[in-house]
Computed example of a mutant assay.
Amino acid sequence: MPVLPELKSLLFLTSIFLLNFMSRIIFGPLMPTIETDFGIDHVYAGSFFLIISLGYFISLIGSGFISCRISHRNTIIISAIGVGGVLMGISLSNNLWQICLSLLFLGLAAGLYLPSGIATLTELVSHEHWGKAIAVHELAPNISFVITPLVAEILLRYLPWKGVLMVIGGISILAGILFALTGRGGRFYGEAPNLLLLKDLFTMPVFWIMVILFSLGISGSLGIYTMLPLFLVVEHGMDRSWANTLIALSRISGIIMSLLSGFINDRFGPKRTLIGVFLITGCFSILLGIISGRWVPFFVFLQPLFAVCFFPPGFAALSSLTPPSSRNVAVSLTVPAAFVIGGGAVPAWIGLSGDLLSFSFGIFSVGIMILSGVLFAYHIKLGRLK
């Protein structure tokens, strides 16, 4: 494992990443309260995540233009303080237009972190520990899935939902300031994106296939997750506190399963692993949209169990399908593009379904969509470009 100074720096960056991710999903457990407060419909609530994902997509693509001028270190600082500042700004907003505009800036601020965070991490940690260091860093999203509903519910006992955002925003600003004062690494500059390489990548059919696969993978985890509180509270009559607690507990297994999926991928290969992930996740998502009564909590636990297993085989397939010259760019573009669909459009669709028909139909239809990933995964030819 990394030595103590490296480990401290790694945990510091992982904490900033956790706050970064939490800032983007905190609106899920807060959404029943926000809907009541503003009297908005479900599709408007779902569009919150679409707006955040659009800002995230733009920022992640353009982050190189920032880091090439102010260094990775300063980019991380700006991202952490910016995320906190926007959350505090939302807590002071009095109308929906201000909130929606702030959500776009939240995505813009959050998207700056990841490229600079990874670059700083690989500078601080010796090469032989890169795999373990990145694995620790990538635990932040799964841990965030678990603790965000719990943090929201605990704070909601004492504060309004705007107060919850104020607290998380303040912690993010503090983390940015502490990194500026004591954080190590990142004192070098990034590279601006190669526009010619981007053009070549966008003309590759395999790139768009991987965007579809990653969109379906993110739909099964983040897309459904963000709308589960509304689904459980509005459609199944659960108490908000119990719904958020149930969702948090259901995500604990993801921390272990995401690590286990790496071993499964090495044993069976990315293609067969992806087929299995889409088949099982799609079926469980469909059943979550169909069942009712005492079976609901059971499938709330089952649905994300294999959804989190997508990413190790997904990245392995992406690495095999793209040439070395464009591999890093392919990764940096595939994920944010898929995030717009899986983490933005899918929650908006579930919200729209909740208004027009039912949340159950929305989740059912997303399950059908995820199940179609079996066909896309079956037809990819690893190691061969077309």
Rank of each mutant, 00 (worst) to 15 (best):
L4F: 12
L7E: 12
F12L: 12
S15G: 11
I16F: 04
L18Q: 06
I25N: 08
E35F: 02
H42A: 14
Y44V: 09
F49D: 01
L54N: 03
Y56P: 00
Y56N: 04
F57D: 00
S59Y: 05
S63V: 09
R69C: 10
G89I: 12
C100R: 15
S102I: 06
G107C: 11
G111H: 06
Y113P: 00
P115W: 04
P115S: 04
G117R: 02
L121I: 02
G131W: 09
P141I: 00
V146N: 02
A152S: 13
E153C: 04
L156Y: 05
R157P: 02
L165R: 01
I173G: 00
L174C: 03
A175I: 01
A180I: 02
G183I: 10
R187Y: 11
G190P: 02
E191C: 08
P193C: 09
L195A: 10
L197Y: 07
L197K: 12
D200G: 01
T203E: 11
S215L: 08
G220T: 10
S221Y: 09
L222I: 13
L222S: 05
L230S: 13
G237D: 13
M238Y: 15
W242H: 13
W242P: 00
S250T: 11
I252K: 02
S258T: 15
S261N: 11
I264Q: 05
T273Y: 11
L274H: 14
I275E: 15
V277G: 12
C283V: 14
I286G: 04
L287M: 12
L288E: 02
R294S: 14
W295P: 08
P297V: 13
P297M: 14
F298A: 14
Q303R: 09
Q303S: 09
F306K: 05
F306L: 15
A307I: 08
C309Q: 10
F315L: 14
A317K: 03
N328K: 06
A330H: 06
S332R: 06
V335C: 01
A337C: 09
G343R: 00
G344R: 00
S358H: 05
F364C: 02
V366N: 01
G367H: 10
S372T: 14
I380F: 12
R384K: 15
K386I: 14
